[in-house]
């Protein structure tokens, strides 16, 4: 599988990554090489195999429905690039 410029652009958009126009060919090359490596997966038959999402064959533990957290807004907001009135600010969201 090898990727074209348009594939790289599409993926970069989905992943919200700005990429320099000049760098696209090298991304396309590198990603294609990685996909070539990955294509080795097709050398093995997995038709009867169930996917393994997790190393543990365990069930989810469930938490009691209790409020354990207290307000730490001011502490957390210190890391925010832009805030006002306890809100995180971002460029206008248009719906």
């Amino acid at each position: 599988m090898s990727l074209h410029k348009s594939d790289v652009e599409k993926i970069a958009h989905l992943a919200r990554l700005s990429i320099n126009e000049d760098d696209i060919p090298s991304y396309a090359d590198n990603l294609s090489n990685i996909l070539k490596l990955v294509d080795q997966l097709n050398t093995v038959d997995t038709s009867d195999i169930s996917p393994m999402a997790h190393p543990q064959d365990a069930a989810q533990r469930l938490r009691e429905d209790e409020v354990t957290e207290t307000d730490q807004r001011d502490h957390f907001l210190k890391n925010a690039p832009k805030t006002a009135d306890g809100l995180f600010l971002v460029p206008k969201v248009i719906e």
């Binding site: 990727l3 790289v8 993926i11 992943a15 919200r16 990554l17 700005s18 590198n30 990603l31 990685i34």
Partner: peptide, 18 residues
């Protein structure tokens, strides 16, 4: 994201996204 992440990270994000 484009400026904050380095090349290898962007590469892996793109492979994963794909």
């Amino acid at each position: 994201r484009g400026e904050g992440f380095g090349e290898e990270v962007k590469r892996r994000i793109m492979i994963g996204t794909y």
